[in-house]
Amino acid sequence: MNKIVLYLALSSAAIAGDTVPVDGPALARLVQQDCGSCHGLTLKGGLGPDIRPEALAHYEPETLASVILDGIPGTAMPPWRPLLTQAEVEWMVDYLLSGGLE
C-alpha cells in the first residue's frame, strides 16, 4: 500500500472533524477482498464494473459514498450501511479515487 496516500486519506478524515478512528489497513483489505469479489481483486471489473481511479474520476466523492452506503437498487451493488460508518466509507472513496491499491 502506498503510505503517503494512506497518510493523506487519514488526514483528510481528521480534517473533516471525524473523531471515529478508521482502520485503514482493514478497510484496504476489505476493498481488495470483498469489493473485489464482484469488482475483481485488482478492481478492474468483474460482475461489477471497473472501479479503478480512471473509471471513477468523473464522479463526485459524495456520489460514490452514497452508492457504497446505500447500494444501487435493482443491481447487484448492495448497501454497505449495515457494515460501515460514514467515516469509513469516506476513507474508502478517497482510497479508491487515489488508486491506493496500486
Binding site: D34, S37, P78, P79, P82, L83
Partner: peptide
C-alpha cells in the same frame, strides 16, 4: 415474496 431482500455481499 413478501420478505425484504437482504444485502448480498457475495454472490
Amino acid at each position: 415474496e413478501g420478505r425484504e431482500g437482504l444485502p448480498v455481499y457475495k454472490m
